[in-house]
Design a binder for these strands. Structure first.
Lengths: 154, 154
DNA sequence: ACCGAGTGGTTGACGTGTCATCCAACCTAG
DNA sequence: CTAGGTTGGATGACACGTCAACCACTCGGT
């Protein structure tokens, strides 16, 4: 009767369960590590990483799009990071609304110290769990899902 | 010099990036959908799902372990859900410290309405992006990472 | 009978993410 | 030049997760 059945079949369900579980544990563990190692939140880490990678100075909205966040999230995040001295905001002379986000020396230092440690955890917890072939396969699958998501509404 | 190099090589990095991006977008989208469709948070959904699946009445700590959460998180969550009438707490006669978590009729109704919709989104956004073979592969890879995580400290 | 360790669960403070709303500056058509 | 839409960004209220501390009860040994 129903063109699309109500539940997933067991193999599909198993794949979904494994993926969800893995993803939660892995991300959770990396988040706790970055916190413990560097006194930064994962969000701090990403923002500083992308920002310094781009030269340490970027327009607010460009940064927001780069990390694919909502602007409100970035606004709060930058405010908090500014309070902690990791970044600083500057006005944009060309556009009266605009703002620059600039990594402070403390911010640069923080990310330079944190990055290798973080990479080491990614390697230890994720990369070393899999062969290069499996990594490639996972990348391919991830890209497929990503591409599929863009074809789907909402 | 360095036994383990400082950075990931490009293929490893690409796999990690794709995975992270996919996982964020997919999870984020499903979270927004469950919110919009059912007025429940993803956490509400999981708790109610596992609870009713187990008969609708469970010891607090059993539920906590079942969903693999920290007890503090579950405590807050159950308190919020109780406030919204999805769930109710009862004392345990056998153990003076213990508590039962019980799904209310409203809670049962909420999950029964939300579940098929949610499954449909999982199917649409995830399952249908991949072949059954790819799903199996992803499950295998996920299980490998999970197994690896358990061998690693912290 | 007691004491100490462990278990079950709560609490409060804090950082974070989302949503809706707002505002100011920009841009373009008329 | 001006009205209306759009973009850049801030803000406040709220739900959520984590951490550390805490309390109350149970249980095993002495």
């Amino acid at each position: 009767m129903n063109a699309t059945p109500r539940w997933l079949d067991p193999e599909q369900q198993a794949a979904w369960d494994s993926f969800i579980r893995m993803q939660e544990k892995l991300i959770g563990r990396l988040a706790r590590r970055v916190q413990a190692d560097s006194r930064m939140s994962p969000s701090d880490y990403i923002v500083l990483a992308k920002l310094t990678e781009a030269g340490g100075r970027m327009r607010f909205m460009d940064l927001t799009k780069l990390v694919e966040w909502e602007k409100s999230r970035m606004s709060h995040q930058v405010a908090r990071m500014a309070k902690r001295g990791l970044v600083r905001k500057e006005d944009c002379p060309d556009d009266g609304r605009g703002a620059f986000v600039v990594a402070t020396p403390a911010g640069r230092e923080a990310i330079e110290e944190a990055a290798p440690v973080h990479v080491e955890h990614v390697r230890r917890l994720f990369v070393e769990a899999l062969t290069q072939e499996e990594l490639d396969t996972l990348a391919r699958i991830s890209d497929r899902v990503l591409a599929h998501l863009e074809t789907q509404p909402d």
